[in-house]
Design a protein around this nucleic acid. Structure first.
Length: 972
RNA sequence: GCGGGGGUGCCCGAGCCAGGUCAAAGGGGUCGGGCUGAGGACCCGAUGGCGUAGGCCUGCGUGGGUUCAAAUCCCACCCCCCGCACCA
């Protein structure tokens, strides 16, 4: 250990992980004599080795598991591996294509040898490789996992379990079929999300209404708009005169005119054949009819029209759209089409703040726009008008409309906010076949990584889980309400997620995983097959033991095990085993379920963790709903999120081999509370990991062993100093248990490793030989230490108490603490504080004597009552009333006194207030007990007087000012 | 745009939900001292301003408000971060 203190901890890691795993210390079976605690953490995707981000989540789960074991719970902490989905396949493909970044990562960061990399073109090989590597690291890392229950999500039994889940959801009506627009790469023929576009651009899909304006022959000009309510202000239709248009025939026989480039994109949404190709200029002058107002309007030319966007045909609303306004003015200014436009005037159909103004013309002025070519300014002006009218606009009341729509329009549109009118118009148009919804990429162009421009594709016959169901949401909320959520702030995010969740596609055509049982060409998508797998852990090992060789377990089997449905005998017969086997599985499931705690990264709140709630409430009765969620923060590397592209992933193994498990666990546990992001940088690693933590643990090691080895020489009799020490120790342990109960693992850890250590060190300094009771103190301390740093704890335990393993011990923890002693100690600390404050003000280098005058017992009694009244939340005047009445004091005489005490009381720390009320020791006694302690701390002699004692000398006139909790202090 | 979280001293970061323990924990940095052959290693002290007795003033994004009392509660505004789906 000479040149590298960490070497010792690395040795401990290998030594103890081997011993503890061989002894199968963490295997948990049902035991009705103990309370159970079932905790899981999100299983990992083995497309890389376990890294410190996983390390953090799993450590939180492990610390809680160990804490619960220490308290006497039968704890189950299992682990599986998630193979489902595309990332593993994508990664194998990238290897095959010789992706340089990835190969670098694998070789230099993950330490994979060439031979293995070659085999990783097989996705399953890749997954198994990282699965095995990660599992070994989890063992080294001290995770107290029951490995008998390990599985992957492509195991046959797991697949039959997922099929059961989906069949059940299907039966309950939570699964439905429908169409859905997605970003789509025409070359790959695959949906594309943000992660597979060039520059990671999220393709924003906008919903347009294509309104059908028809010419006299019935040919439709589908004008695409985001603002269907402006149809009342249409004065004409725009086409681009310099581009080509296609006449297309839809499957229902309808003829449409659309932009040539638009047609190539529309074919992913509509079925049609091309009938004719026409130059845009040939369409100019055609008259078409507005389907809502019945007005006849001309088709006019405008160069701003993009024939590749949406339909390539747009309607013109000059009063409310800057582009339309400027284009119209351009034509008016030219000679050619003057006749057509001479009697066109912009129609204002929206009023803002009660004023009927043509916002578009105002915007043109405001943004100083004078030509159609000023695209940038026009876009800005459009955005401005759009948002102004959407936020503050109301439809005017006298809209021109065809008789057949009048009633509806007057009710739903006239005088209504633009927001509402828009929805009303959309449904009117769509429901009456006056138009249809088409989708377009709003931030077009967006390119696939392959360079192809993305289009919108309407996926048909897609399977969905309907998280939008209101009744389902209601029970999900009910479950959430009963759950413990850490951190509490995350609850709002869960609530918001439940609110906005809609139906979600749950199956894909590609990837690893389970086929939909009723439509096997679809693979259940990976976030959908990992919502209730915690239930699977409870029985998987028994299934493999007892039902070996049975691949596909029927629905009836799972119905019985998880829902108690059906007849056990029949089910057993179905799979050809004895009834008691099936019966046992049901019992083990019921023993462990419900899940007590789920730990996962906070990024999974809007998806996995909420789906987890939804699926549990859909399938299980409320008695089996999960009880808690911890959403932990990330691990940041130099303030950056870890990512493969940033090349800043730190595999957990690398840290363990450098620092040792116990040190890594402290690094991850003590530097951020569970819900915060934890930042890691080299400074911190070298400072804490190489020096502070190893030293701290070694000091603890030495201290405990020294105390234990001197056990024969310990004192039998007890002094007040011992009692002070024990009271404080018991108190700290109590605080630690409370913090752990609230999952404040960092704060609890700091108390274990620093506060207790400090207390013991200072105690050892104060006494010549420690009391015999210190043996039990170090025993409890060691137990607490083992929660965070199991290996050093086992090492010390094996050299001292050496009965079994500390990791498997249940500890007798102190039930309470000696309140009188603790009160004395807190009181003494307060005096010490005051004294040092005075000394500071005096600017004296040193002091010799401190004289303390303590207020009378009767005053102390009043103070107690004031404190009691204060703790119930009373105000000053109420306290004065209350206390004087209760103690039968005259208000006139004591009002001021009580007020003075109140003023002191509010400055006293809450814990001391509580102790002051609860203990039955008075201040004079407290001081006598702690006199020696104070003297040692301030390094001066202390004299104590009762302020009411006439015989006491009055130094510095401090005798009179003595008050309860604020004694008179004179310093010399 | 919608939704969630947040703005604290030179820097990081607690406190805020349950208003007085708050000039505000804990780090880091800086300054001073000790230790040392020497130290970037360790230990002690200081770190808003004023004050010869435990005190006062100014302060927790900005501006208002409630209260005997506000970093904490309410309102408005400004700014920052995260999520928005078929992607794990």
């Amino acid at each position: 250990m000479a040149d590298n203190i960490n070497e010792y901890f690395v040795q401990l890691t290998y030594k103890w992980s081997k011993i503890l795993n061989e002894e199968k210390l963490y295997q948990a079976d049902p035991d009705s004599s103990k309370p159970k605690f079932f905790i899981t953490a999100a299983y990992m995707y083995p497309n890389g080795p376990i890294h410190i981000g996983h390390g953090r989540t799993y450590l939180i789960a492990d610390i809680i598991a160990r804490f619960k074991r220490l308290q006497g719970y039968n704890v189950l902490f299992p682990m599986g591996f998630h193979y489902t989905g595309t990332p593993i396949i994508t990664m194998a493909e990238a290897i095959e294509n010789g992706d340089k970044d990835l190969l670098y990562l694998f070789k230099n960061v993950y330490g994979v040898v060439d031979e293995d990399i070659k085999k990783m073109v097989d996705p399953l090989y890749l997954a198994r490789y990282f699965h095995n590597v990660s599992k070994e690291v989890m063992k080294l890392y001290g995770l107290s996992i029951d490995w008998r229950r390990e599985f992957t999500t492509i195991d046959d039994d797991y697949k039959s379990f997922i099929q059961w889940q989906f069949l059940t959801l299907y039966e309950k009506g939570y699964i439905e079929r429908g169409t859905h627009p997605v970003g789509w790469c025409p070359k790959h023929e695959m949906p594309v999300g943000m992660h597979d576009t060039k520059g990671d651009v999220e393709p924003e899909i906008g919903e347009f209404v294509a309104i059908l304006f028809r010419d006299d022959n019935g040919v439709a000009y589908p004008t695409a708009t985001l603002r269907p309510e402006t149809i009342f202000g249409v004065t004409n239709i725009w086409v681009n005169p310099d581009k080509y248009y296609l006449k297309i025939r839809l499957s229902n026989g309808d003829l449409w005119i659309v932009g040539e480039d638009a047609a190539s994109r529309l074919k992913y949404q509509l079925d049609f054949e091309v009938v004719d190709r026409l130059p845009g200029s040939s369409l100019i002058g055609v008259f078409v009819t507005n389907p809502i107002t019945g007005e006849r309007v001309p088709v006019l030319p405008a160069s701003f029209v993009d024939t590749s966007f949406a339909t390539g045909v747009v309607m013109s609303v000059p009063a409310h759209a800057p582009y339309d306004a400027i284009a119209l003015e351009d034509i008016k200014g030219s000679d050619k089409l003057r006749e057509l436009v001479s009697n066109i005037t912009p129609k204002v159909i929206i009023e803002v703040d009660g004023e009927r103004v043509a916002s578009a013309y105002q915007a043109l002025k405001q943004f100083k726009i004078s030509a159609q070519t000023e695209r940038e300014k026009l876009d800005e002006a459009t955005k401005y008008v759009y948002s102004l009218e959407y936020q503050r606009g109301f439809m005017v009341k006298d809209l021109k409309v065809l008789d057949r729509f009048r009633e509806y329009i007057e009710k739903e549109v006239c005088g209504r906010p633009v927001k509402n009118a828009r929805e009303a118009m959309e449904s009117l148009i769509v429901n009456n076949n006056l138009g249809t919804i088409i989708y377009e990429i709003l931030n077009k162009p967006v390119y696939c990584r392959c360079g192809t421009e993305i289009v919108v594709k309407l996926l048909k016959d897609q399977w969905f889980i309907n998280y939008g169901s209101e009744s389902w949401k209601t029970i999900a909320r009910e479950a959430l309400e009963k759950m413990k959520i850490v951190p509490p702030e995350a609850r709002a995010q869960f609530e918001a997620t439940i609110d906005w969740l809609k139906r979600r596609a749950c199956a894909r055509t590609r990837g690893l995983g389970t086929p939909l049982p009723w439509d096997e060409k679809w693979i259940i998508e990976s976030l959908s097959d990992s919502t209730i797998y915690m239930a699977f852990y409870t029985v998987v090992h028994r299934i493999r033991e007892a039902l070996r060789g049975i691949k596909a377990l029927p629905k009836e089997f799972w119905d019985y095990v998880f829902l108690g449905r059906g007849d056990v005998g029949n089910v057993a017969k179905l799979i050809n085993v004895e009834s008691k086997v099936v019966d046992y599985l049901r019992k083990e499931f019921l023993y462990w379920y419900p899940l007590d705690m789920r730990v996962s990264g906070k990024d999974l709140i809007p998806n996995h963790l909420t789906f987890f709630i939804f699926n549990h409430v859909a399938l299980f009765p409320s008695s089996l709903w999960p009880r808690g969620i911890i959403a932990n923060g990330w691990v940041l590397i130099k303030q950056q999120k870890m990512s493969k592209s940033a090349r800043n992933i730190i595999p957990l193994k690398n840290l363990i081999d450098e620092y040792g498990t116990d040190i890594v666990r402290l690094l991850l546990a003590l530097n951020a509370e569970v819900y915060q992001d934890e930042n890691i940088d080299m400074d911190m690693l070298s400072k804490l990991g190489k020096s502070e933590y190893p030293q701290l643990l070694l000091e603890i090691h030495d201290t405990i062993i020294r105390i234990y080895n001197n056990a024969s020489r310990l004192r039998a009799e007890e002094t007040t100093l011992d009692q002070l020490f024990l009271a404080k120790f018991d108190y700290i342990v109590n605080e630690i248990m409370k913090l752990l109960e609230e999952y404040k693992l960092r704060e609890a850890g700091i108390k274990i490793f620093y506060e207790i250590k400090e207390l013991i060190d200072s105690y050892l300094k104060l006494v010549e030989t420690p009391s015999r009771r210190i043996i039990n103190v170090i025993r409890i301390w060691l137990g607490l230490i083992s929660i965070y740093t199991p290996y050093i704890a086992e090492e010390i335990w094996s050299k001292t108490f050496a009965e079994g393993r500390i990791s498997a011990k249940v500890l007798e923890l102190p039930k309470g603490y000696d309140k009188n002693m603790l009160m004395s100690l807190r009181y003494a600390d307060m005096i010490i504080d005051h004294v040092s404050n005075i000394v500071k003000a005096l600017k004296k280098p040193s002091i010799n004597l401190v004289i303390v005058y303590v207020a009378s017992k009767s005053m102390q009694k009043i103070m107690k009552n004031v404190l009691k009244a204060l703790s119930t939340g009373l105000k000053v005047n109420e306290i004065i009333d209350n206390v004087s009445k209760e103690m039968n004091l005259s208000k006139k005489e004591f009002g001021k006194v009580i007020k003075a005490l109140y003023d002191i009381a509010v400055t006293v720390p809450e814990d001391l207030r509580k102790l002051y009320i609860e203990s039955d020791i008075d201040e004079l006694e407290a001081l006598k007990i702690t006199k020696m302690y104070i003297e040692k701390k301030i390094n001066a002699k202390v004299m104590i007087y009762d302020a009411e004692d006439p015989a006491a000398p009055d130094y510095g006139a401090k005798k009179r000012i003595a008050q309860p909790l604020r004694p008179g202090i004179y310093v010399e």
